[in-house]
């Protein structure tokens, strides 16, 4: 278990953003984190990173408590926020250099790695272009390169395909799948792009109004909802079914 939370709860005043969350993510899998906007997905990710203090409950990420060992956890976990930002006057290489510096990676080692990563995400031709001039898709890919800088065991990706054109979204999903296969990186991704999530996720979790109402493989969830049958349900059908019930 690379992520395990027990009754994780976050309250803002009277509002409960996340309620008694028990989430388990296994080593090496891609876990799709689904749910409408404002369901508490981002809050959950922030708590897993130790950036937000839970009101109750506990979490273990890579076997560590993110609240006490935030820095250790962040050493192994890469987080790509929903609208990842860059310093507009830096170029791609400078951006990555700064991230390497923040991770305490030595300059010479960083140099080599930066160009490898740029090639991996397909930005090698834009290495010296200012990030201010990057398109949305390029920014997302640069964001992925940045989180890979620290050789993470776990990636938390918040809406990595949001606002990308269909081709860009397919490329991004392909990249995530490749990272999971070739580097054995566990991925927890939240997304609204259900067909893409279904394509790559081993398991999914559905979160509505702060509660995780279902978790498992798409087939399991379909069976639980529609009973045994020969019909193959898409994630979209399953999701809407759960959503209507809630």
């Amino acid at each position: 278990m690379i992520i395990e939370t027990t009754d994780l709860t976050k309250r803002y005043g009277h509002q409960t953003a996340v309620k008694d969350l028990c989430l388990k993510v296994e080593d090496g899998e891609i876990f799709g984190f689904l749910g409408p906007n404002g369901a508490g997905k981002t809050t959950t990710l922030l708590m897993l990173l130790g950036l937000t203090r839970p009101s109750a409950g506990a979490a273990a990420v890579c076997g560590l408590d993110p609240l006490r060992m935030a820095r250790e956890v962040k050493r192994h976990v890469g987080y790509l926020p929903e609208n990842v930002g860059f310093y507009g006057d830096m170029d791609a290489v400078q951006s990555l250099e700064y991230v390497a510096d923040l991770n305490g990676i030595e300059v010479r080692a960083a140099r080599k790695k930066i160009y490898e990563l740029l090639e991996l995400v397909g930005l090698q031709d834009h290495a010296r272009k200012k990030t201010g001039a990057f398109s949305r898709g390029m920014k997302q890919r640069l964001g992925i390169a940045e989180v890979l800088m620290k050789d993470p065991k776990l990636l938390l990706l918040d809406e990595p395909t949001l606002g990308l054109d269909p081709e860009g979204a397919i490329q991004m999903i392909g990249l995530i799948e490749a990272l999971n296969r070739s580097r054995r990186i566990t991925v927890l991704l939240s997304s609204h792009n259900l067909s893409q999530v279904q394509r790559i996720s081993h398991r999914v979790g559905i979160m509505i109004a702060g509660q995780l109402i279902a978790a498992g493989s798409v087939e399991d969830l379909a069976r639980e909802r529609f009973g045994l049958g020969d019909k193959v349900y898409t994630l979209e059908e399953v999701y809407l079914e759960y959503f209507q019930e809630a």
């Binding site: 962040k74 609208n83 990842v84 930002g85 860059f86």
Partner: peptide, 14 residues
């Protein structure tokens, strides 16, 4: 506002 603060503190730094 440019979304870089979260990125920086998500790195292994205090």
């Amino acid at each position: 506002s440019q979304g870089t603060l979260i990125k920086v503190i998500a790195q292994p730094v205090y």
